[in-house]
Design a protein around this nucleic acid. Sequence first.
DNA 1: TGTACATCAGTGAACGCGCGTTCACTGATGTAC
DNA 2: TGTACATCAGTGAACGCGCGTTCACTGATGTAC
Lengths: 198, 198
Amino acid sequence: MKQAYHHGALREALIAAAGTILERDGITALTLRAAAREAGVSHAAPAHHFGSLAGLLSELAAAGFVRFRETIAAEVAAAAPTPDARALAVSRGYVGFARAAPGLFRLMFRSEQLDWTNAALEREGAAAFMLLLPPEADDGPVLPTSPQALNTAMAHWSMVHGLASLLIDGRLQAVASKMHPGVDIEQLIAQIIRTGAG
Amino acid sequence: MKQAYHHGALREALIAAAGTILERDGITALTLRAAAREAGVSHAAPAHHFGSLAGLLSELAAAGFVRFRETIAAEVAAAAPTPDARALAVSRGYVGFARAAPGLFRLMFRSEQLDWTNAALEREGAAAFMLLLPPEADDGPVLPTSPQALNTAMAHWSMVHGLASLLIDGRLQAVASKMHPGVDIEQLIAQIIRTGAG
DNA sequence: TGTACATCAGTGAACGCGCGTTCACTGATGTAC
DNA sequence: TGTACATCAGTGAACGCGCGTTCACTGATGTAC
């Protein structure tokens, strides 16, 4: 590898390094110095790109929301073009993303350390949440108008988000196994998702 | 206040102090030294009662599960003795606890820093999860036997847990307000809980 | 095409801070006789 | 009832560590002319 004095794309490299640390070592290990180490630059280098740790975390979360949307969009594209099939696909993508990148999911949805005034984070986060709403015809998601539609959408979101959370923390598996030893978790997940979308 | 050399109940005092710090300053501020400061003892004192920070956090979470069960039991006791009314009461207690003690809720359900081999934590946590199951007659919760019952119980749990999580992180409020400006959040929560229990 | 210079990105030493942990200690409590 | 002694709980100084941050620097890049 070329050892140029200037990295060329250190900002992106630092975000990628932060993602690696997050999944491998957990959020408590994710510091500016650790990200610099992982990216192979001096520990003072991140300050040129991110003012603080919160800045780096927010950029990482924003990038996470982009991946989150891509994951869901891929599931939707592979599904039948009916409202029910679309809702199932969104749920599958949501839960699948959380299980594939639990550290990133926790950061995006749960971290108190994010700076939500960060422009990229606010934009990408808002765009992601729009995917959770039911579509209107072929025009993509629109805002529900009736209280009933809002209730349904939020209840659906709660169930999918709770399922994802309980899975990545291992709680659902533990309780389900205790209630029903030998249960097929993957099948149970598929059933729960179908319950919520129905 | 008497300044006895021996505290008398320092273990309990340290757990209480840790809870105060958790809700006031967040989990990143919760250290052994901070708990000792809050309890008014020297920084080396906690080592006599908790081997490590994970030990203190686990004891705090165990105490949290006791409070969690008490909160839910109080709602159940105040509700009509029907299965539907009981399910609604459990959901109300679950969400109410999370909103009243969000830091503790996060620690109990989400923290990667807990030591689940801790005897108190495992015992109290398991007892709490049993409350989430549907009751059989007047004998209290029993283990579901059919796959269908397991599916229903886990789907219900997912929705309530997701609702609690999205609320304490402020996400549900943000998205609901954007979708439906001026929406009554408390009424929406009550409706979502009714949706899940129905 | 070549030179001068400004700007930018990354370096490495240094700082002060709070942390967990260790350790000899001290004061209080409990028990044996 | 009194004395001696073991045990226990909390103290305070000290340690090494990784952290964020600062700062003068150096090497590379881009631009003006």
